[in-house]
Amino acid sequence: MLKKWSAAVLAGALAVGALAGCGGGDDAGSGDSGGGGGKITMGFSQVGAESGWRTANTKSIQESAATAGIDLKFSDAQGKQENQIKAIRSFIAQRVDVIAFSPVVESGWDTVLKEAKDANIPVILTDRSVDSQDKTLYKSFIGSDFVLEGKKAGEWLVKEYEGKPEPVNIVELQGSPGAAPANDRKAGFAEVIKADPKFKVIASQTGQFTRTDGKEVMEAFLKAHQDIDVLYAHNDDMGLGAIEAIEAAGKKPGTDIKIITVDAVKDGMTALAAGKINYIVECSPLLGPQLMDLAKKVKAGETVEQRVVTEETTFTQEQAKAALPDRKY
């Protein structure tokens, strides 16, 4: 019985594989014409579609490629490194002009990046970096500076409490342990507020970047500490969960407890405009236009910066009200 089934499953898998192969073949066919002409061809491998942020990122890249007249070959890695390596190898085989990708993980890229280098195809990393020692393997890395984001959050706090000598008790909701955004946002924030001893982080726990954990951890914070003045959350979602915990405790988010978050997705901006959050540091997924500029420069043989920071801003409650109607993600 079991044997028959595994045979059936295997046959199914083969059929799917064959279909996928057909798709790949089609792509390669159309890719031939792109490389030769004046039009730039870009192969882009995305991490996946795991969040609203990521979807907006994909959309920005696709739209700005169309506007810039760049022929985009888009591939979704569905969160798997092996898919991404396959995609990059197929881009090399198709001889695209530029390869760009958002690495699923930091390590294990040396071999495939070397292949791209040997084929003389420049590589641009977006959003996330790789840990390769050889920096010549890629031309540039464009993405947010998470340390800077943490610093911006800290700077607002310092300004907000300027001239008030009373101690400020801060609780922090960290992202997933070990993730670069969590480590860096924590470090940047700590660096700025350590200048004044009145700022004290009295509790700091991981909220896993999710609403549920943000709520649960904030509930525990509220019971363990009676005197919380400020909440700093590493992303909007944890902040939104914490708002619910604060409201259930009979306090007013944004007034009794001041809230700073990072990201500026639409839900976060709505809460900011409603006065439940006090300040949001943007972590923008809309790096498409900057990426296309970089690609053109690289193709033209110009030297580009090894590190390009995404153009990002910050939002106060007033700015959020103005920006909210056009917020795409």
Partner: peptide, 15 residues
Amino acid sequence: LDITTYTIGVPAETT
């Protein structure tokens, strides 16, 4: 156990 780690302040890395 979860709530305890938050209340007694076990560092996130050692939870």
